[in-house]
Design a protein around this nucleic acid. Structure first.
Lengths: 346, 346
DNA sequence: GTGAAAGCGCTAACAC
DNA sequence: GTGTTAGCGCTTTCAC
């Protein structure tokens, strides 16, 4: 590659195009920008277009950005790229953003707030025009930082406690309620709950949904039948389910706050010599890919994460363009997907 | 947010820091850059650091980039963000890249070469310092474009036919061979092959591996027992397996070029009233997440995709830094993971 | 060791 | 409608 110098992407400048077309650089700029093309004579515009095409000219967005103050970059902060919940969110967001000419900077920020803040600062240093955060906690320092920096920001999947910024989330309480009522309808009474981190909206709201559904049907959770975990992982799910089974032996069903946790319940049941759904019914949350293929196929609550990503991008673009300065929360409706991990109480 | 103007991330400039510290902007630049810090007096450096911290100064990478010619952006082109093979690749790459101070621009480029080229051009317009392509075909126009543009590029997961650029791939032929020999060892003779797209290295090499293994053991594939698909999807897998079962009724085992295709084989077997592994053994390729939980747990070939992403990032960084101008191909060793989808021939 | 000055490639306000 | 000019925020060569 190249002639031995430092590796660098070759660049044709606006000046070279101008020289070739025999016009001034600003005319080239105007001719190439759809918004200002009307200001330039048709024949010159054609000349410019031809010259640009011949030279393979691509405007330098960095330079334009420096001048206009808009980078056409959006930062997306994810807690875990490999968690399959976030892939469709990212896909939905990039779909919308790319269509609008925005480039997407992605960071795998991890679970620790400090590392999340560091990556957020990094993105701000790259002068992104706005941010989509999938990392929010109920009280989130990243949101505070964005507010300080006056950076347009939208939360996705998880919301904040005090609603300081726009967010796109699923109705997590409703989802957990649908899951719980499905079990109640199947005759279950001794229903355990395996929750996620309580400092995240998903963890807290889904638990509320479970409790609300139980109360609504005059049921009181048995002592020790609500367990929360530190993270949404299969391993944490297994450990949590172990505790649940040990503390509350009579359980005939478990509502898990997340599919990964539900798979952990499968693991724990297997280890305890129990069978799902014969001995214990299990419901998950998210409807991750392949949940129809695990054994038994998981009854769960489907969330349209791809659409969630799209909506978040739309909200962010509106806020960047100030078409709408309004803070708003979009709540998507989840759907119960009944499969074979739930059965009538024996 | 803000005082009603257009949304914009507030910026503290080097000038403001200089004014506050009572020094010249160039001194601030030198003091803040680790490489040039030695050139500035310790007391002034401390003054600058304090001023920068107080103001919350973050250098504008775009401006620096314009000046230095290096954007510290890397573009990653994926054919499908939602395919779980690419998430760990992206995670591994961002891990390395972020550690080295590079921001990652990601694009979901789709399967069509035209859209891939368009997104590639977009990234080049953003003046990325280099590119990681997970989209490569055996004859890839994107690679040609990068070469024309003199853009540092590394392929990941899929390689090119003529090796024009560096790549990090799994030994796909070996993987398919391991899978096939495992079946042969179990006594299977009538082994079918369900392949992926032939214009991709994975599709072509895995098929060769299958054929090589068969030949090595004196076996000849039955007529019609090799079928290829247009895409690595569960649905294409089901259709392909239908054809396979119909054309070659006596098959007792199937090597699939990919886990998704293998799951499609499960679907087709179910539809045909056959059972895996009792009637037909199945082997996949990739060891996607959850393949241990599907029913039956899938015997497959594990590839360390996260490490693949890391290695690709490393190779790219070396090429950008010209520490090593060498074109090189890193071939990772895959590993056979035996689970319950394969059994001795009945 | 530090300041002055130029300039990366572009856009936009201004002149004509 | 087109050219001129200035400048976005930074780095880096050149003086001193």
């Amino acid at each position: 590659m190249g002639e031995g110098g430092r590796a660098r992407i070759e660049a044709v400048t606006i000046k070279q195009v101008a020289a070739r077309a025999g016009v001034h650089p600003s005319t080239v700029s105007r001719a190439l920008n759809p918004a200002t093309r009307v200001k330039v004579a048709a024949d010159k515009a054609a000349l410019v277009a031809a010259a640009a095409a011949e030279l393979g000219y691509r405007p330098d967005f960095r330079a334009a950005s420096l001048r206009t103050g808009r980078s056409r970059h959006i930062g997306v902060l994810l807690p875990d790229i490999q968690n399959s919940v976030f892939a469709p969110i990212l896909a939905g967001a990039t779909e919308r953003l790319a269509a609008e000419g925005y480039a997407v900077m992605v960071a795998d920020a991890g679970r620790r707030p400090e590392s999340q803040l560091a990556m957020l600062d990094e993105m701000i240093a790259h002068r992104v025009d706005g941010l989509i955060l999938a990392t929010a906690q109920l009280d989130d320092p990243g949101v505070t930082r964005c507010l300080e920096r006056d950076a347009p920001v939208v939360l996705v999947n998880r919301s904040e406690g005090r609603s300081r910024v726009s967010a796109v989330v699923s109705d997590d309480a409703l989802g957990a309620q649908l899951a719980t009522e499905h079990l109640i309808r199947l005759g279950h009474r001794a229903i355990g709950y395996l929750g996620g981190p309580e400092h995240q909206s998903t963890g807290s709201l889904r638990r509320s949904g479970f409790e609300a559904a139980m109360a609504l049907h005059g049921l009181t959770p048995l002592a020790g039948s609500i367990v929360t975990t530190d993270a949404y992982s299969r391993e944490d799910g297994r450990r949590g389910a172990d505790r649940l089974l040990q503390r509350t032996p009579g359980l005939t069903a478990v509502v898990a706050a997340n599919d990964l946790l539900a798979l952990g319940v499968y693991d724990a049941l297997g280890l305890a010599g129990l069978t799902c759904p014969t001995d214990v019914s299990v419901v998950g949350h998210n409807d991750m890919p392949l949940m129809d293929l695990v054994s038994p196929p998981l009854t769960t609550v489907r969330i349209d994460h791809r659409n969630m990503g799209r909506e978040a991008a739309d909200l962010l673009l509106m806020s960047i363009r100030r078409q709408d300065t309004q803070m708003r929360t979009v709540v998507l409706r989840p759907e119960l997907i009944v499969r074979a991990s739930t059965a009538p109480r024996a």
